[in-house]
Design a binder for these strands. Structure first.
Length: 506
RNA sequence: GCCGCGUUGGUCAAUCGGUUAAGACGCCUCCCUUUCACGGAGGAAUGAGGGGUUCGACUCCCCUACGCGGUACCA
C-alpha cells in the first residue's frame, strides 16, 4: 500500500482517512504501507509540508513502514529524487518508441489560444486529443525531419500519451465494481513535463510498479483519469501486474454541497486539518483537530466510520479493532457530509473511555497556558476523572476543573443574594466550626452531616446547597458539591466559605 | 457541453427480494440529579421521481431529475 500526498499544505481530513484505510488494509493483510511524497510540481511545493504530514501521521498513530523519514527497500520516497535518477524519463521514451506517446512542442500560450479558439457552448473545454493534435505542433503532426530539428535545437517539449478513440477501457474497482470508459472522452495527457518532471499520471504508474504496490486507494476525484493509468500499465508493465484500485468516496461540506475544504472549516468554525498548520507563503493559519482538543483515538475512530461500518451498529473502535474488522467491501460508494457535532461526540466518548492519565499531559499544558498551577500527577488525574463527563473537548477541562487548583476569580454572588439571610449566614458559620472539628470525611458522610445540620437549623437543604456550590466553584456548575469539597480538602473548603461569607456581608 | 460516479430521516447509516425500514449524532419530552453533565425511558423524522421484472421491491433493470467529481506542463 502507499499513501502519496503532495506537499502543498496541511493534511486534510480526507487525506487522513485515505491514510487510515491504507493503513488498516495493510495491517489487516500483513502488508506494508509506504509514504511517498509526490513533489513533482515545483510551483506548488511548500517547505515544511512534508514534515507536517509525517508529524500528523505520527500523532494519529498511523506510521508508515517506509517513507522519506524512514529508509526501506523501495526508496527514494520523494518523486523529485526519483526523477533525478532518471526513473520516469526512461519509461516516457519507451512509450514513444512503442508508439504510445509523442513529443509535443506547443508553448503554454499556444495551448491557451487553441483552447480559446475551439471553445464553444457545447464544448467549453476543448481537449488535446486525437483530432485536435493534428492542428498542434507535435511529432505526430510535424514531419519527422522537423521533429528531429526541433529536438536537436533543444526546443522545450512535453511527452504526451497518444490515445486512440473508441477504445473501451475498464477495470474492477474494489468499491465500485466494474467501471467502463471510452478513450474518446479522454485527452492526450502530458506524461513528462518540459522541466523533465513526470506528471502524476506517469509517476503514479511507474512508482506503483517499482514500489511493488498491490492495492492502491485514492480519492474519488481520480476516477476520471483511471483509464490513462490503466493504459499506461498495459503499455509499460502489463495489466496483470496492475494494483487493485479503490476510489474512496469524498468527504463533503456539512452544508450545501461539494468537497470539504479548509475554507468551510473557517466559515463553520471547526478544523479540517489534523494539526495546526500555517502556510509559510501566506502566513495564513489553520487550526487542527489536535489543537482543538481531539484525542487521536477519537479522530481515527470518527474518520474510520465516515464511509465505513462493520454492519453491527458498533461505532466506537480502537485502532486494533479496526485492523481486525476493516474490509473494503463495506466501504460506502457515496460521499459523506462531515458533521462536527458527531465528531465531538466521538471525542467525548473517548475522553470518558480512556483513563485520565492517557491525556493528563495535554490537559496539564492547557492549564499552564491558562496560568493555573497543576498539582502532582495523582491528584490531577483524580480531578480530571471527576469532571470528564462534561468535557467533549480537551480545553473544556480548564473551566470545568480550574477551580480545584485556583480559587475562583469571580463568584456569582447575584445567584445567592436574593435568598440570602442571617439564618443562612449563621448556618455556614456553624458549618465551618463543624468542619474544623471533624476529621476528613468522604462525600456521602459529608453530605449526611450537612443535611443533618440543615434539618437542625430548619432550613431546606436545597436552599443551602447552591450557596455552598457557589462558594466553592464560583458558579452554578461542576460535579457533586461534596465530591468537590473532599477533593478541595478541609482547609481550602473552609477558606472559600469564609471568603464568600465575607463578600456577602460587605 | 462531454465523460464518470453517486442518491435510505437534518447528518452518519443497517438492510444484500418478503423487516412494524435497525442503530448513532442532533432535536424534543420525561426520569435520575436541589447545578451542569453522565446515565435511563420515550418521541418526532427516511427509501428523489417515473416506468418495468417479480407472487412480492429500499433492494434487480431502464429512463428522468438532482448532486458530486473530472475535463491543466495541479495533484
Amino acid at each position: 500500500m502507499r499513501f502519496a500526498p503532495s506537499p502543498t499544505g496541511g493534511l486534510h481530513l480526507g487525506g487522513v482517512r485515505t491514510v487510515l484505510y491504507n493503513y488498516l488494509f495493510a495491517r489487516r493483510h500483513g502488508g506494508d504501507f509506504i509514504l511517498r511524497i509526490e513533489d513533482t510540481d515545483q510551483g506548488r511545493y511548500v517547505p515544511g509540508a512534508e514534515e507536517y504530514i509525517i508529524d500528523s501521521l505520527k500523532w494519529c498513530g498511523l506510521e508508515p513502514d517506509e517513507g522519506p523519514h524512514k529508509s526501506g527497500p523501495h526508496g527514494p520516497y520523494r518523486q523529485s529524487e526519483r526523477k533525478a535518477l532518471g526513473l520516469y524519463e526512461k519509461y516516457a521514451r519507451q512509450l514513444i518508441e512503442q508508439g504510445h506517446a509523442y513529443y509535443a512542442f506547443d508553448t503554454p500560450e499556444e495551448l491557451e489560444s487553441m483552447r480559446e479558439k475551439h471553445k464553444t457552448a457545447e464544448n467549453p473545454s476543448p481537449q488535446y486529443n486525437h483530432t485536435l493534435r493534428r492542428k498542434m505542433r507535435n511529432s505526430l503532426s510535424l514531419d519527422p525531419a522537423e521533429t528531429q530539428r526541433l529536438l536537436a535545437e533543444g526546443t522545450p517539449y512535453v511527452i504526451r500519451i497518444r490515445l486512440d478513440p473508441d477504445q473501451d477501457v475498464h477495470f474492477t474497482d474494489m468499491i465500485r465494481g466494474e467501471v467502463h470508459f471510452s478513450t474518446t472522452g479522454v485527452d492526450d495527457k502530458v506524461l513528462l513535463k518540459a522541466d523533465g518532471m513526470p506528471t502524476y499520471h506517469l509517476a503514479v504508474v511507474v512508482d506503483d510498479h517499482l514500489m511493488e504496490i498491490t492495492h492502491a486507494f485514492r480519492g474519488e476525484e481520480w476516477l476520471p483519469s483511471a483509464p490513462v493509468h490503466i493504459l499506461l500499465w498495459r503499455y509499460l508493465f502489463g495489466e496483470g501486474k496492475m494494483p487493485q484500485w479503490a476510489h474512496l468516496p469524498l468527504i463533503l461540506k456539512p452544508d450545501g454541497h461539494g468537497k470539504l475544504s479548509k475554507r468551510d472549516g473557517d466559515r463553520l468554525g471547526f478544523p479540517v486539518f489534523a494539526m495546526n498548520w500555517t502556510d509559510p507563503r501566506t502566513a495564513e493559519p489553520a487550526t487542527g483537530f489536535r489543537e482543538t482538543g481531539f484525542l487521536p483515538q477519537a479522530f481515527v475512530n470518527l474518520l474510520a466510520v465516515l464511509g465505513w461500518n462493520d454492519g453491527t451498529g458498533q461505532e466506537l473502535f480502537t485502532l486494533q479493532e479496526l485492523v481486525e474488522k476493516f474490509s473494503m467491501d463495506r466501504v460506502h460508494k457515496g460521499g459523506a457530509k462531515f458533521d462536527f457535532e458527531k465528531a465531538k461526540w466521538f471525542n467525548h466518548e473517548w475522553i470518558k473511555k480512556l483513563p485520565a492519565a492517557d491525556y493528563a499531559d495535554r490537559v496539564a499544558s492547557l492549564f499552564e497556558a491558562a496560568g493555573i498551577p497543576v498539582p502532582p500527577a495523582g491528584r490531577f488525574e483524580q480531578v480530571l476523572d471527576l469532571v470528564k463527563d462534561r468535557c467533549a473537548l480537551l480545553p473544556e477541562f480548564v473551566p470545568q476543573a480550574g477551580f480545584f487548583f485556583q480559587a475562583p476569580a469571580t463568584i456569582d454572588l447575584d445567584a445567592v443574594r436574593p435568598k440570602w439571610n442571617d439564618a443562612k449566614a449563621l448556618f455556614f458559620a456553624e458549618y465551618i466550626r463543624q468542619l474544623e472539628l471533624n476529621p476528613e470525611l468522604d462525600p456521602p458522610a459529608l453530605e449526611a452531616q450537612f443535611k443533618e445540620m440543615a434539618a437542625a437549623a430548619a432550613i431546606k437543604p436545597g436552599e443551602l446547597l447552591m450557596p455552598l456550590r457557589i462558594m466553592l466553584v464560583g458558579g452554578k456548575f461542576g460535579p457533586h458539591v461534596f465530591d468537590i469539597a473532599v477533593l478541595l480538602g478541609r482547609e481550602e473548603t473552609i477558606r472559600r466559605i469564609r471568603h464568600t461569607l465575607a463578600l456577602l456581608k460587605g
